[in-house]
Every structure is written in structure tokens, then in C-alpha cells.
């Protein structure tokens, strides 16, 4: 007899008294924690593919401007990308400043793109798909606006590095830089 009672009690506890609220709580908290843990683990793994510290450490370059005469250009590497440094002539500065700002695709004043009007510093990377535009060397095609011309898909940039014609959506990017002295700039 005693044995039967125990059996009944056992059945009762498993079949009739399931605390569903408690089960839902356990299920949701366990599941939630597993998802959060999984996402954190995944991110720490995925993040290994982002730029490493040594890559980030190469992020500044100093350039001496003295050898660049008026009208000349220099290309330097910064973060694996070419930077165009252009010693602009008075005519080129004038051209860049006389443009009607409303006619531009990416509206930006020349004044806000330079620290010293004689020196234009821009990334030599076309904002369309990343080619290096022509126009740094003597004899290069400079495009319809006297600045640079991208041979890949035909974007034309003016003497302020602004997009004037072609598929590129934005002006050539101005990298962060400062004049360390009159003749030396530090990019990055």
C-alpha cells in the first residue's frame, strides 16, 4: 500500500504541477544569455579582421614642402593611399574660388578645403570606386576643370579637388593635416 501512494505522489508532481511560468522564465533567460554570449564571442572573432594596431600606428606622415615649386605637385603615401599635395598658382586658386557654389554636385567652399590657399592637400583616391586620378605629372590629362581626371570611369575634379563631372558622388577627401612649421606638414 505504501508503495502505491509514493507512486501516486510521483505522478502528481510530474504531470499535474508543472510551473509553466517558471519554465518560460528559465527558457527565456537561458536563451537570452546564450544569444548575448554568442554575439559577444562572434564580435570578438569578427573584430580580429578590422585594422590591427600596427596598421593604425602608421597613421601619420610628415612632408617637407620646400622642394615643391609653384605649379608642381607631389604624391606621398599615407595609410597605404596616395595623398596629392598641390602647390597651386594664383590662377588655379582664383579658378577654385570663383566657381558658383550652387552649381557644384558636392557643395564645398575652397576656403574650407585648405589651410593655406597655396597648398591643396587631398587624398588621391577617386570617390567613385577608389582609382587614383591622373593629373599629378606633367603631361597627364587633368580633365575639363584643370585638376584631376579619373581614367576608370571618367570623373573630372577641379583645382580644389571638387567633383565637377562624372559618376563620383563626392569631392576628393581632405585628410586631417596640420602645418608643423611654414614648410612642413604632418598628415594624419
Amino acid at each position: 500500500m505504501a508503495k502505491k501512494i509514493i507512486e501516486n505522489k510521483y505522478q502528481e508532481s510530474t504531470e499535474t504541477k508543472i510551473d509553466t511560468e517558471k519554465r518560460d522564465f528559465l527558457f527565456l533567460t537561458t536563451g537570452g544569455l546564450a544569444i548575448a554570449g554568442g554575439a559577444l564571442t562572434a564580435w570578438s572573432l569578427i573584430n580580429t579582421m578590422n585594422p590591427a594596431k600596427d596598421v593604425l600606428a602608421l597613421s601619420s606622415t610628415e612632408v617637407d614642402l620646400t622642394p615643391i615649386d609653384e605649379g608642381q605637385s607631389l604624391t606621398v603615401m599615407w595609410r597605404g593611399k596616395p595623398v596629392f599635395i598641390k602647390h597651386r598658382t594664383q590662377i588655379e586658386i582664383q579658378e577654385a574660388r570663383e566657381v558658383d557654389i550652387d552649381s557644384l554636385k558636392h557643395k564645398d567652399l575652397d576656403e574650407s578645403r585648405v589651410k593655406n590657399p597655396s597648398w591643396l592637400v587631398v587624398l588621391g583616391v577617386c570617390t567613385h570606386l577608389g582609382c587614383v586620378p591622373l593629373g599629378q605629372k606633367v603631361g597627364d590629362a587633368k580633365g575639363d576643370f584643370g585638376g584631376w581626371f579619373c581614367p576608370c570611369h571618367g570623373s573630372h575634379y577641379d583645382t580644389s579637388g571638387r567633383i565637377r563631372k562624372g559618376p563620383a558622388p563626392l569631392n576628393l577627401e581632405v585628410p586631417p593635416y596640420e602645418f608643423v612649421s611654414e614648410e612642413i606638414i604632418k598628415i594624419g
Binding site: 579582421m49 578590422n50 585594422p51 590591427a52 596598421v55 595609410r79 597605404g80 593611399k81 567613385h128 570606386l129 577608389g130 582609382c131 576608370c152
Partner: peptide
Amino acid sequence: TVITNLFSAFPIIGESIVTFLWGGF
């Protein structure tokens, strides 16, 4: 360069995607 730059077309996250794909700049 050209093909990975295709991803820069996406607004806001585009540039970070490209940097991630390159593992650099």
C-alpha cells in the same frame, strides 16, 4: 580596390564595411 569599394556605396556603414574587408585603409 574597385570591387571592395562597391560596398562603400551603402550609406552610413559603407566606409566601415570597406575598412573591415581590407583590414586597413
